[in-house]
Nucleic acid binder design. Structure first.
Lengths: 193, 193
DNA sequence: CCCTTGTAAACTATTATAGTGTTTTAGTTC
DNA sequence: GAACTAAAACACTATAATAGTTTACAAGGG
C-alpha cells in the first residue's frame, strides 16, 4: 500500500523537522502512526533509506507543484516570473523543503548529507536554464551563459526564501515586495533592452 | 561563579525548549556553552537537579517581573488589573515558562513532573488571594472565597496565555482585546456593584 | 613553587535504539 | 466456523549513546 508508506513518511517528516535525524527514533515513528516497527521495516530497508525516500518524495512534490503552476504559459519571461513566484511561495510554505535545500545537517545522518541535498537544486537549475535558452532563441533575452545565470538566479531566490526564518508574518507584504524586487532584478539582468 | 551557573542554565533552557528533557544530553549542553562536563557536575548534582534549578530560576524571574510591575499601586482593583496584564504579557513573551505552567511533560523527566510544576501556580494564586482579601477588607470587593476565586482567576488567564500557541502575530490587537475581556470578566465577578 | 580552577578526554555502567524474530490479534475468504 | 492473511504487539539482541566519574593536564595567581 502506497498509502501506508506515505503515512509513515508524513510522520517522519514531522519528527525530522522538529528533532532532526539523530533525535528521531524508529519507535517514535511507529507509535506516531500506529504502525508496528516490523511493518515499517517492510516498507523501508533501514532508517537512512526511510529518510532518503522522504527526501525524494518531497523533492518530487515540490517539482510537480512548481511545474503545474507554470504549465500553460508560453512566453519565457512570463514563465520565469511564474517560476520565481511559485518557488518562493512554496519554499516559504514548506519549511522542510527549505531546510532540505539549505542542506540543514540536522535533518540527515552524516552519510546522507552530501548525497541527496542537491536533488532539486540541479533540477530547478536545469529548468531555469532551459527557459533562459528559450528566451535567448526567441531573441528576447541577452546572450548570457544560461547555466551560470540559472545557477545564480536559483541561489538568489533560495536566499530570498530563507529570509523567512525567525520573522513574523506581519511581513507578508514585505515578502511580496522582496519577491518583486527579485523578479525585477533577474529580469533586468537577462532581458534585452 | 553564579555567572557560569546562569550561562549553563541559559543553554539548558534553550535545549529543553527545543528538544525536551530526554532528547537533551549533557554532552550537548557542555558543548553549547563551552564548559566541560566536569564543571557542570560541579554546579549541579545531576541532570534532574540541573533542570530543577532552571525551573526555580525561571519561576523566580517570572515572579520578580510580575511583582515589579505591581509595586507602587495601592488600589487592590488596579493591582489586580496590572497583575493580569503583566502575567498575560510575560507568559506570552516567555514560551518556556508557559510550557512549564502548562505542565508540558516533554520538559521534564517523569520524576520531576509532579514535583515542581505547581511552583509558581501556588505563589501567584497566593498573591491574587491576598489582593482579593485586601479588596474585601476595604469593602470594594464582594465577599467571595478568595482562595477559590484566586485559583479560578489564575486558571483563566493561564488559559488566555496559552491561546497564543499556533497563532500568528497579526493577532496582536486581538490579544489585547481578549485580555481586556478577561479583566472585565474578573472584575465584574468580584467588585461590589 | 603550589594551589586553584577548569578543560579535554578516556572510561564505565547503564540505558536506549536499530533491527529481527516470534506470538497475537483482527479481519477476510471459503 | 475453519483456514488464511496481514499487520500489530511483544520480546529479544547486538550495538551505540549517554549519564556520570576519573584521570591527566594546562593556565593562571599568590
Amino acid at each position: 500500500m502506497d498509502d501506508v508508506r506515505n503515512r509513515i513518511l508524513d510522520n517522519v517528516k514531522e519528527r525530522l523537522d522538529r528533532f532532526g535525524f539523530k533525535k528521531t527514533t524508529m519507535d517514535e515513528i511507529s507509535k506516531d502512526c500506529k504502525i508496528s516497527k516490523k511493518t515499517i521495516y517492510e516498507h523501508f530497508k533501514d532508517k537512512e533509506d526511510m529518510v532518503t525516500c522522504l527526501f525524494v518524495r518531497e523533492c518530487h512534490k515540490a517539482m510537480e507543484i512548481i511545474f503545474s503552476h507554470m504549465g500553460e504559459i508560453e512566453d519565457p519571461l512570463e514563465k520565469l516570473i511564474q517560476l520565481i513566484r511559485t518557488s518562493v511561495w512554496y519554499f516559504r510554505e514548506d519549511i522542510f523543503i527549505t531546510r532540505l535545500l539549505k542542506n540543514d545537517e540536522a535533518l540527515y545522518s552524516a552519510f546522507l548529507s552530501r548525497k541527496y541535498h542537491a536533488l532539486i537544486d540541479q533540477e530547478i537549475i536545469s529548468i531555469i536554464a532551459a527557459i533562459i535558452r528559450e528566451g535567448k532563441e526567441q531573441g528576447k533575452f541577452r546572450d548570457v551563459d544560461e547555466r551560470v545565470v540559472a545557477y545564480a538566479g536559483f541561489k538568489l531566490f533560495q536566499a530570498f526564501s530563507y529570509m523567512r526564518t525567525g520573522e513574523f508574518d506581519e511581513e507578508k507584504d514585505r515578502q511580496e515586495y522582496y519577491t518583486n524586487v527579485l523578479i525585477d532584478f533577474v529580469i533586468n539582468a537577462i532581458v534585452k533592452k
